[in-house]
């Protein structure tokens, strides 16, 4: 077992464990912190795949922005939640069972694929050609339309979020 494999196993186990803790913690704030741990684990997995750019974006966007947003929201709404004794709904065993079966199905499905056991070899160091990626995003023959649509989506989400969360005193009650 190579060193990289060992690293992968450790990271994967930590990531999955934190993932479980995200959905199992009783305190919301703990959940959020575990989420950061999971996201970090995913970033490291990206790095082991030699996708350095996305590893960094993962840290910046997910950990830097999204997690912070979530924590802010928790702080704004926590008062009620701290008194809760349990965080899951009553019949939680059914979703759990479903998740386990679904995992089995996915694994079984994947195992029938011929390339499933393919090895990921080390790529040349400069393989992640960011210039080509960037050009493709603004190339009319490439992905400029999805790119522009995505920017509009972000803008709309921004405006929408502000509008929804704004307090409208004149309309209250």
């Amino acid at each position: 077992m190579s060193g990289l494999q060992v690293v992968f196993l450790i990271v994967a186990v930590v990531t999955l464990f934190s993932g479980v803790m995200v959905v199992a913690s009783r305190k919301m704030m703990h959940s959020a912190l575990w989420l950061i741990m999971t996201l970090l684990g995913v970033a490291i997995l990206f790095a082991t795949l030699q996708a350095g750019f996305f590893a960094i974006v993962q840290v910046l966007v997910y950990i830097g922005a999204i997690s912070i947003l979530i924590i802010f929201t928790l702080m704004l709404t926590r008062r009620v939640m701290d008194e809760e004794t349990t965080q899951v709904i009553k019949g939680w065993w059914l979703p759990a069972l479903m998740a386990v079966i679904l995992f089995g199905l996915l694994a079984g499905l994947l195992a029938t694929w011929e390339d499933f056991q393919g090895m990921l070899n080390e790529l040349p160091a400069d393989v992640e050609n960011l210039a080509a990626f960037g050009t493709a995003l603004v190339n009319p023959a490439g992905y400029v339309i999805p790119f522009e649509v995505a920017s509009i989506l972000l803008l709309a989400a921004l405006v929408g979020a502000i509008y929804i969360a704004m307090e409208r005193k004149e309309k209250a009650e």
């Binding site: 709904i89 019949g91 059914l94 979703p95 479903m98 079966i101 679904l102 199905l105 079984g108 499905l109």
Partner: peptide, 19 residues
């Protein structure tokens, strides 16, 4: 969530049947 659980359960059942 109850709706979603029902939906996913049916999906999983269908998956099992097909499998």
């Amino acid at each position: 969530q109850q709706y979603m659980v029902i939906a996913i359960s049916l999906l999983v059942l269908a998956g099992l049947v097909i499998y």
